[in-house]
Design a binder for these strands. Structure first.
Length: 474
DNA sequence: TTTTAATCCTGCACGGCACG
DNA sequence: CGTGCCGTGCAGGATTAAAA
């Protein structure tokens, strides 16, 4: 099969020598991850992406300061969504994996979290936009057909007009009901965008006894969605496919762990992009070469144009890729290492994460293979060794960020649960102080006497050295 | 989703205790 | 004995969990 669109091969990269510099820098940092201890971090493995995509990622970093972690992860999401139910990968007999992803971009406000996502899903939004215009046209014709039919009752065998269906990929604002309805009409697969993950989580079990949670867990596994409703038609979606992208502020990551009984299994299912040492930067003089934008659009459109084969029972029958022998061997090798790491892990939360990574390495292999195909850099008959190796690079990055998130949840400092006033007061107190000194400071910041004295009783924050004298513990 | 109950936090008042 | 330090019960507000 050949690509419907081809990327411009004439595109001249030679004038863009800065790319090599940036890439050298980026690759130097990600040189080896295996020997590092768990507190070091791995930089985002740009080299996992196809050549042309690497150029786009680096150009976006250079011209618009998009962190490579964000744009790269957002691109994985975009490709995941574009693949949908068209392709799966076979691991073993009776075990296939889809390209479904849950991703989250983590960073402080104003650090370019949403722009990279908007850029990478741009081609899909364009597609949704044009199908919506067609839909409106069809609705217009449908209404006309209905009215003609009403008037012209004389023809008994008049063709029943078909109510048009809106096809779309992206859902921004949704309720569980509207989402399943959209998915019912778009069985190829849809994607949602959640602006603040923490608040999304918080409302999971609020109003409906955990069924939201259940829904997202089973969707992640690609299980069927079966809903019987009191009002409206029952819904049955055999292979559900809803990829999720979200953002969250680093400072409220710890909220994911609150009331941890229900959410823990969930954070393991999310791949986190967390750029190291992220800060706001100055505008750059460099402009994004339009060819990069063009190339990305071509690639995504190649994927979006893939049809979903439908079998004789009217259900989807995706094309199934399998691993090459070498690729499968590498996968097995990694799985052994991961299993050992998992078994020797001291804590159950870590085990949960590691077992999800085992699924994700397969899914990322599929996504990367399809991405390479879309970029015209390989075929899509099998998943090759090279692809598996790249997927493993990515997984090790996501293992690292996943552990980072876990650390946020586990040892969030006792300071985090304080109100901002108390936190400020605590920080302005000297290491050693007498009650009277502290009281003065507290009053100047508007904290009442009793409140301050009760505050002093918190053993995790203060130690009483002697009568009327305290020292800070943190 | 709205209503209700439970829990936590805060400010106030008061009384006991340590210290010089 | 005076002064500052410390603990506690209570009421009302805010937040969170449970019920309707």
């Amino acid at each position: 099969m050949s690509n419907r669109y081809s990327l411009s091969p004439e595109f001249d990269f030679s004038g863009l020598t800065f790319l090599d510099e940036v890439r050298a820098e980026a690759n130097g940092k990600s040189a080896n991850y295996q020997g590092l201890d768990r507190h070091n971090s791995i930089s985002f493995p740009i080299s996992a992406f196809p050549e042309k995509v690497q150029h786009i990622i680096l150009a976006l970093q250079e011209s618009l300061q998009y962190p490579v972690d964000f744009i790269g992860t957002a691109m994985l999401y975009t490709v995941s969504l574009a693949i949908g139910n068209t392709h799966k990968v076979k691991v073993k007999e009776n075990w296939t994996e889809s390209a479904l992803l849950y991703i989250a971009l983590v960073g402080a406000p104003g650090t370019m979290k949403s722009h990279p996502l908007s850029f990478s899903i741009g081609p899909i939004i364009d597609r949704d936009c044009s199908t919506f215009r067609e839909y409106e046209k069809k609705v217009h014709e449908y209404k006309k057909a209905i009215s003609i039919k009403a008037k012209g009752r004389t023809k008994p065998e008049y063709d029943e007009p078909i109510k048009p269906v809106l096809h779309k990929f992206l859902v921004q604002d949704f309720t569980p009901e509207s989402l399943t309805e959209t998915h019912r009409l778009n069985k190829r697969g849809i994607g949602v965008y959640v602006d603040e993950l923490a608040s999304w989580f918080k409302n999971f079990n609020r109003y409906n006894n955990g069924s939201d949670q259940e829904f997202w867990l089973s969707n992640w596994s690609g299980k069927p969605i079966i809903i019987d409703r009191k009002t409206g038609d029952p819904i049955f979606i055999k292979s559900s496919y809803i990829s999720v992208a979200g953002t969250i502020q680093e400072s409220i990551l710890s909220e994911l762990g609150r009331g941890n009984r229900s959410q823990n299994g969930f954070t393991d299912r999310i791949l986190f992009a967390m750029p190291e040492g992220l800060k706001k930067s100055y505008w750059s003089d460099r402009e994004l070469h339009p060819q990069h934008l063009q190339n990305w659009h071509v690639m995504v459109n190649n994927l979006l144009d893939l049809p979903v084969p439908i079998d004789e029972t009217d259900s989807l029958s995706p094309t199934v890729l399998s691993f090459t022998d070498e690729g499968y061997a590498r996968l097995k090798e990694w799985q052994r290492e991961n299993t050992d790491k998992c078994n020797s892990a001291d804590n159950d939360m870590v085990k949960g994460l590691y077992s999800k990574l085992e699924v994700y390495v397969i899914r990322l292999s599929l996504i990367l293979q399809m991405m390479q195909w879309a970029a015209g850099e390989s075929d899509k008959r099998t998943v090759e060794l090279n692809t598996v190796a790249r997927a493993i690079d990515l997984i090790e990055y996501f293992r690292n960020t996943g552990m980072k998130v876990k650390r946020y949840l586990l040892d969030s400092s006792p300071l985090d649960k304080l109100t901002s006033e108390k936190k400020l007061l605590y920080q302005s107190l000297p290491i050693n102080f007498s009650t009277g000194q502290g009281l003065l400071l507290a009053k100047s910041q508007g904290v009442a006497e009793v409140t301050f004295k009760r505050f002093l009783n918190d053993n995790s924050l203060f130690e009483r050295v002697s009568y009327g004298n305290y020292s800070k513990k943190i």
